[in-house]
């Protein structure tokens, strides 16, 4: 159970949002919508622990996540705007770092996003959509029980219809396993029954 109480976020001297609260149960999904600059990405970074909230609390199973940030980091996967791909490394090597950090099988994760045929290519030759799929392949490394919270920032930007379908299958399997998803998006996402938080 992820609970946000009265969260506020400051960027520079400007309040991006304040008094924000929501609850997310296992298996649940939350879509963040809002205009550019409404604070969707900031909220995701805040939920990831990359930003400290200016006010309010974020609770995981009743415990404040600020108390043990390393434990919070281990139970979440964050896919931000940037794809975190190293151009000089092959796809397999890019993913192998995360497989060594978090466990899981890099080859199977690449196959889940249909990247197996490209595994030995350097990431610098990938198209934008393929780089996005490489970032999403990090989600497929371990089952939902190990990393239950997925924070996705515009996950489908640049993806073709078949890849959106593969992401949909990953999201469904994750939620069926008790995982949670918080996603910021302007495009329709394959997240049936997701709640919406308008910022």
């Amino acid at each position: 159970m992820l609970e946000a109480e009265d969260l506020a976020c400051l960027r520079g001297e400007r309040a991006v949002f304040a008094g924000l609260g929501f609850r997310l149960a296992p298996g649940g999904a939350l879509l963040l919508t809002g205009a550019n600059g409404a604070g969707k990405s900031s909220l995701l970074r805040l939920l990831a622990g990359l930003l400290a909230p200016a006010a309010g609390r974020l609770l995981w199973a009743g415990e404040d996540v600020q108390a043990d940030r390393a434990a919070h980091a281990r139970r979440l996967r964050y896919v931000g705007h940037a794809d975190a791909a190293k151009p000089a490394l092959t796809l397999r090597e890019n993913l192998a770092l995360y497989a060594r950090l978090w466990g899981g099988d890099a080859a199977a994760a690449l196959a889940a996003l249909d990247l197996a045929p490209l595994a030995e290519l350097p990431a610098r030759v990938l198209s934008a959509g393929q780089r996005r799929r490489l970032a999403l392949a990090r989600l497929a490394l371990v089952p939902a029980a190990t990393a239950p919270l997925w924070l996705l920032d515009e996950p489908t930007v640049g993806l073709d219809a078949a890849s959106v379908g593969r992401l949909g299958a990953l999201l469904a399997a994750h939620r069926a396993g008790g995982g949670m998803v918080v996603a910021a998006t302007h495009l329709p996402l394959p997240l049936p029954g997701a709640g919406t938080l308008a910022l």
């Binding site: 970074r45 980091a73 975190a84 190293k86």
Partner: peptide, 11 residues
């Protein structure tokens, strides 16, 4: 390139 965020969340 966003890798630092991932490293900060690496545990």
């Amino acid at each position: 390139d966003g890798s630092l965020d991932q490293l900060r969340l690496s545990g």
